[in-house]
Amino acid sequence: MTAQNEQHGPAPVDAEYSATVLASHWIQRPGADETLVEPAAEERSTPPDRVEGTVLRFGPGVTATIAHRTHRMPAAAPPPAPRRRRLRRHALPVLVVFCVLALLAWQRLGQPLRVGAIAVTARPTALGCDGTARIVALVTTNGRPGTLSYRWVRSDGTTSGVLEEVMVRGQKRARLHLRWTFQGPGQHTALAELRILSANQRTASTRFTYACP
């Protein structure tokens, strides 16, 4: 017996031997009263939520409200107002400011020289022999700079040439002078008239008498 055992020796090891395969014979099979639950069936019993990209959420932990919120797309931002509408909205205030500034600039810089009241007086009002009358015209203006052009016209038929008075900014009064001399015997009622030729044309005059026996 011993010799026979030594003759045969240990059984050769199979090259395709697998412990896993052999162990599978010793796994206890479920009995007839045991129910084998298939994993796929358990997974199918809980339907997945909505798909967001490549993520799937399972189970009762995700409520319908959350699922709806995750699915809802963000509200689109309102489109920007057209460029033309924005320009139209700002055009009126800019125009008002521009008009006010233009009016102020015109009042300070652009308004031309204008003549107001004129008062002409003669001193003395009654001349004796070989006397000279001093005639003064007080001209008021609006204070704008410019040049007053004027001439004197006398009742004896003589007229001065065109004279000029330069007005500086802020000067609102100008005194214009005329000297009229009489000689020889006689009596005469004289009239001296001032005529403003530039700015707004105005005239003013005064009278005096000459008496020489």
Results as ranks from 00 to 15, higher is better:
24 S>G: 09
3 A>M: 05
48 P>K: 01
79 P>R: 15
189 T>S: 12
143 G>A: 08
15 A>G: 13
101 L>A: 12
48 P>M: 01
19 A>V: 01
60 P>M: 03
95 L>A: 15
29 R>N: 10
71 H>R: 14
110 G>D: 03
167 M>A: 03
13 V>D: 06
57 R>V: 15
174 A>G: 03
124 P>W: 00
19 A>E: 10
157 G>F: 02
93 P>G: 04
60 P>W: 05
120 V>W: 00
48 P>S: 13
26 W>Q: 14
131 G>K: 02
196 I>D: 07
4 Q>R: 12
99 C>S: 15
24 S>N: 11
205 S>A: 15
4 Q>A: 13
156 D>Y: 12
178 L>G: 00
167 M>Y: 04
83 R>C: 03
146 G>A: 07
85 R>N: 08
65 T>P: 04
64 A>E: 14
137 A>I: 04
176 L>A: 02
47 P>N: 09
38 E>F: 04
31 G>L: 00
172 K>C: 07
200 N>H: 05
12 P>Y: 07
48 P>R: 03
73 M>L: 11
74 P>D: 10
95 L>C: 08
166 V>K: 14
5 N>V: 10
74 P>S: 06
28 Q>A: 11
7 Q>K: 09
198 S>M: 02
131 G>V: 05
68 H>I: 05
141 T>W: 03
161 G>Q: 13
35 T>F: 03
77 A>V: 06
71 H>T: 14
54 T>Y: 11
14 D>S: 14
144 R>N: 10
144 R>W: 10
